[in-house]
């Protein structure tokens, strides 16, 4: 399947990535090759096969809804690139 430049741009936006022009060209080519290879899955008979989402035993894991001590804002925000008191700072969202 051939992936167009436009598609790469759309997907990159969804993935919150910015791809430069040079990388776009090579990505189109690489992705097309990779997706061509993936197309072999179309040949598998999967009628009535239930998809699996993991290899764990599928049962619900429950616990008591009991309060536990929180690490607190100093610990939680220790790695924040930008913060103000107990808040993460991000660029302005509302113009």
């Amino acid at each position: 399947m051939k992936i167009s430049r436009q598609e790469v741009e759309n997907i990159a936006h969804l993935a919150r990535l910015e791809i430069d022009d040079q990388s776009k060209a090579s990505l189109c080519e690489q992705l097309s090759g990779i997706l061509d290879y993936m197309d072999k899955l179309a040949h598998v008979d999967v009628q009535n096969v239930k998809p699996v989402s993991g290899a764990a035993f599928m049962h619900n894991v429950l616990r008591e809804d009991a309060p536990h001590p929180s690490p607190g804002p100093d610990v939680t925000l220790a790695n924040a690139p930008k913060k103000d008191a107990n808040y993460y700072l991000v660029p302005r969202v509302v113009k």
Partner: peptide, 15 residues
């Protein structure tokens, strides 16, 4: 459906 859905079905067959 064509990719993730189908791959998850093929995974069931591999299992």
């Amino acid at each position: 459906d064509a990719y993730y859905g189908r791959a998850s079905q093929v995974r069931a067959l591999i299992m």
